[in-house]
Design a binder for these strands. Structure first.
Lengths: 119, 119
DNA sequence: TTTAGTAACTTTCAATATGCAAGTCGGTTG
DNA sequence: CAACCGACTTGCATATTGAAAGTTACTAAA
């Protein structure tokens, strides 16, 4: 767990920071969860309701990975029954610039795109 | 082909620009090819020599997709035998901001990262 | 006191994507 | 003619994804 928190794995594909970030968020779904957090969503069921309809098993896996890499954190907001809330860490919030650059590119080059994130 | 060039597919997961860009470059390899192009690489064999060792079939597939989406273009730089050079289009060059944001995040949060891209 | 409902997952299994190795094609060089 | 090069393509085993259903813990309604 600390192994991934500090990312000291020497199993990285290369020392390139682009390769490094892609090893963490380089897939079709992970950054959509991060986007949802920026958009104010906090719970598992809220993520599931997003228009892309992320499969439940994938969502569980991505949340686990984001936790392992210290990009999000999880805390119970009620007991009996226990329910959890997810939030971005500092490290996660710093992905905002990546997301903003993506939004800019998408709005310019993909017709019909309209942002959901507040800047 | 024009169908993808203008991205008028209504098969997109959602109108979100983040989802849209992830449908195009959201995987472990595509942005590494784009990074290589920013780093001055131009040919198939140069891409293959990058430290992440992209599998040949994946490289061929990603180049094809990048061409379809108008992010790169291909031209022969010699005949007999014919050899090709790839280059970023305007649309491709505009991914520079996404890459730069990723480099910044990676250098800050992934120990041992060192950039290969010239700003 | 079953019955229904909700949130947060987990499991199963078929379909798709990835990765490695080897092969192909057109052509040049020794 | 044998070896080599660049740019791919093919075959096949393994890994990941996705759709759907199931589980757990608990509350509220009938």
């Amino acid at each position: 767990m600390a192994a991934k928190q500090n990312m000291s794995d020497n199993f990285r594909r290369s020392p390139c920071p682009v390769a490094g970030i892609l090893d963490i968020v380089g897939d079709k779904w992970t950054l959509l969860v991060v986007r949802d957090l920026f958009a104010g969503k906090q719970t598992y069921s809220e993520f599931q309701k997003s228009p892309e309809r992320i499969p439940s098993n994938i969502l569980a896996d991505r949340l686990k990975r984001l936790l392992e890499y210290g990009i999000i954190e999880k805390e119970p907001y009620q007991t009996r029954p226990v329910r959890y809330r997810y939030a971005l860490t500092g490290r996660g919030r710093e992905l905002g610039k990546v997301l903003k650059a993506m939004v800019a590119w998408g709005e310019k080059h993909i017709p019909g795109s309209r942002s959901v994130i507040k800047p």
